[in-house]
Design a protein around this nucleic acid. Structure first.
Length: 469
RNA sequence: GGAGUCGUACCCAAGUGGCCUAAGGGGACGGUCUGCAAAACCGUUUUUCACCGGUUCGAAUCCGGUCGACUCCUCCA
């Protein structure tokens, strides 16, 4: 039985899908106005681990992720500027080019991190009609009003607004008296459809029953998730910051539109990645993207491994020191796998001790995705000399269905030779010198190889070259 | 002001009241191996869980307090 923490109940619950054997899972995707930073990516890695664990548990997972390519403002109070428009003005490119460019960059990052592509990736701009249909439904059910040319959702038209975040509305309202010139009836009301754009050059606009305009941010996720997963589905994911506003508003809209509760059975949220100054951010501190990590000498999978060393509901602090540790561990694991592959092939049946390790690993993952514990079991097995290499390989490949480190793709040690013909000529010269016990020459050749960026290692099977780090 | 989280050995980090005299990784040190290295393997680095009280037969785990760090409500996953 898989267990998962549900933000709605604030408890770890047994996972029981709505439809036996199948899971509908919606994940809030990126707003494509800039590169994703590694804190953003942490959440997508968590969602990928969740999906993979569900799949190993035997479920068929319909994983849907949106791309927010319109309508997400810089301010949550329905003011501020459209982020993509802002970026467009800064760069002189069209909003469509900006969105396409950063969507592509995001999907490349996902691929580099070995994140399984969602079954459905949907763009907000392709679903304007679905959003309009949902707003019409809300209008019909009496949950909307028009003010200043915009269509608003009235939170007072429902009786359980804010249940996910456990918002205390009286407190919030008394603190919101400053909001004088808003057209809103309640300060927490939010826009479903804008026609009254503050920007005369707003590039992305569509006709609607309320006039030419564009959708509010929250309606896109409600409309698309319902379209692809139905009025009830199992899991909705995102970062913890989405709880108080975005997910709260999504619930309000979706349940008010369909008239049925609850909309989503399990709410799962990933914690933040922190840096020295606090939250990882695009505006303060170093803007850390995946490419920045690569330029610092890390493999994208080092970052994936790093994320696995902390629990998804705990804040994780980024530092280059911590990344170095993760890289060392990951490289060591890869090296060991490569060496085992050189002399063994995965056994077809796993038994005894190896089977126990696999079970402990799976148990840790099934219990609210305790990846750090699961990795602990992996390493303990690696050191256990009573388990054969063949069994270890077979178990590792199964573990990797969840870890997603690409252990199955690692080549056996010595199979593909590192270095060119010149380097290998030097290796042979060195072997010859060693044979003649001419160690001064042997050492000078080793130094020369290091200058060329290679490390020689003498193994029982002869010398091997590795790229120096 | 409101909501919530965290403080674990040199560093990162797991710990769901008793198999915890605290996983796992990294680093450092020692050993085996080696012409010397590197790699690999073995061992050490831990009676200790911010601090002070309490509950309990029993607490890193529960409760109260103190100190410290952080997140959300206020652009970002």
């Amino acid at each position: 039985m898989m267990k998962i923490y549900n933000t709605m109940s604030r408890r770890i619950e047994d996972f029981v899908p709505i439809h036996e054997g199948k899971v509908g899972m919606y994940c809030c995707g990126p707003t494509v106005y800039n590169f994703a930073h590694i804190g953003n990516l942490r959440t997508f890695i968590f969602e990928d681990i969740l999906r993979r664990t569900l799949e190993v548990a035997g479920y068929e997972v319909r994983h849907v992720m949106n791309i927010t390519d319109v309508g997400h403002l810089t301010g949550d109070g329905d003011d501020g500027e459209d982020k993509i428009s802002k970026r467009s003005k800064e760069t002189g490119k069209t909003v469509w080019d900006i969105a396409a460019f950063y969507t592509d960059a995001f999907l490349k990052d996902e691929k580099a991190l070995n994140i399984e592509p969602p079954v459905v990736v949907c763009r907000a701009t392709d679903h304007i009609a679905d959003m309009i249909a949902m707003i019409e439904e809300l209008e019909k059910n009496g949950h909307t009003y028009i003010a200043d040319g915009n269509v608003y959702f009235s939170i007072d038209s429902i009786d359980d607004y804010g249940k996910l975040a456990r918002l205390n509305l009286d407190e919030l309202m008394s603190g919101a008296r400053i909001d004088v010139d808003s057209a809103k009836k309640n300060p927490k009301d939010f826009v479903l459809w804008f026609t009254n754009s503050k920007f005369k050059d707003q590039a992305m606009v569509w006709p609607s029953p309320w006039g030419v305009g564009y959708p509010g941010w929250h309606i896109e996720c409600s409309a698309m998730s319902c379209k692809y997963l139905g009025k009830h589905f199992d899991i909705h994911c995102g970062g913890i910051d989405a709880i108080p506003v975005h997910h709260t508003n999504e619930i309000a809209q979706s349940e008010a539109a369909s008239g049925e509760k609850p909309w989503v059975k399990y709410w799962c949220h990933g914690e933040f990645l922190l840096n020295d100054t606090g939250k990882m951010s695009k505006s303060s501190g170093e803007f850390l993207t995946l490419s920045v990590l690569i330029s610092k000498g890390y493999d994208p999978l080092d970052y994936r491994y790093f994320c696995l060393t902390g629990h998804y509901r705990s804040q994780l602090k980024y530092s280059e020191e911590a990344m170095d540790h993760a890289r060392a561990a990951r490289q060591s694991l890869f090296q060991k796998v490569a060496e085992m592959k050189a002399s063994a092939s995965p056994s077809s049946e796993i038994s005894g001790k190896a089977e126990e390790y696999l079970k402990e690993f799976d148990d840790a993952m099934m219990n609210d995705l305790r990846a750090p514990q699961a990795l602990g079991r992996l390493w303990t097995m690696m050191k256990d000399q009573s388990v054969s290499d063949a069994d270890k390989l077979a178990v590792l490949i199964k573990m990797d269905r969840i870890l997603g480190l690409g252990l199955d793709k690692i080549e056996a040690a010595g199979e593909s030779k590192v270095g060119g013909p010149e380097e290998w000529a030097l290796v042979e010269k060195r072997a010859e010198a060693k044979k003649n016990r001419d160690f001064a020459i042997a050492d000078s050749i080793r130094a020369e190889l290091l200058e060329r960026g290679f490390v020689v290692k003498d193994t029982p099977k002869g010398p091997v070259l590795e790229k120096s780090v």
